[in-house]
Amino acid sequence: MNPSLEQLTADYTALAGQVETCDFALKGYHLSVAVPSNQVVAAAEIADRAGFSIDAVTGVDWIAQNEMEVVYDFFHFTSPLRVVVRTRVPRAEPELPTISAVFPGANWHERETHDFFGICFTGHPNMKPFLLPEDATFHPLRKDYQP
């Protein structure tokens, strides 16, 4: 079952998301969806139902806007379609729900994001330091990180 771009656009628009269709040759993905941070699980479920696979979860620190962006990449095994779901959380309190119940593979990616940015994924089963040392309290990819 291959998902169609129109169906996905409709699904994500229904999710109060801003959907933007992109030129693959310029961006490297077809669909960029911005959703509120409490909607990421629903967004992941849409991707799951459409047969997408988890590519990566990562963060970007927009210190000028005082926000953190969390980016979810999805790719599809059989159709050449790439979807990016992004959401923003305030820098002071970076918290959003985990999608590891939908995609177990997101477990590690979220732990890594927590390590690097200090973004908390509520409901995550194992939010321990992952790539950083066990006693690490710093988050090196924050733009205000001073080593």
């Binding site: 790719f75 177990p104 593979g105």
Partner: peptide, 24 residues
């Protein structure tokens, strides 16, 4: 593989012809 995002020979050994050289 889909749930964990496994790719490469792992996914091709599970019967899915996914190869970035062809998919993208």
């Amino acid at each position: 593989c889909r749930k964990y995002g496994a790719t490469g020979p792992v996914i091709r050994g599970s019967g899915v012809a996914y190869d970035v050289r062809r998919a993208e």
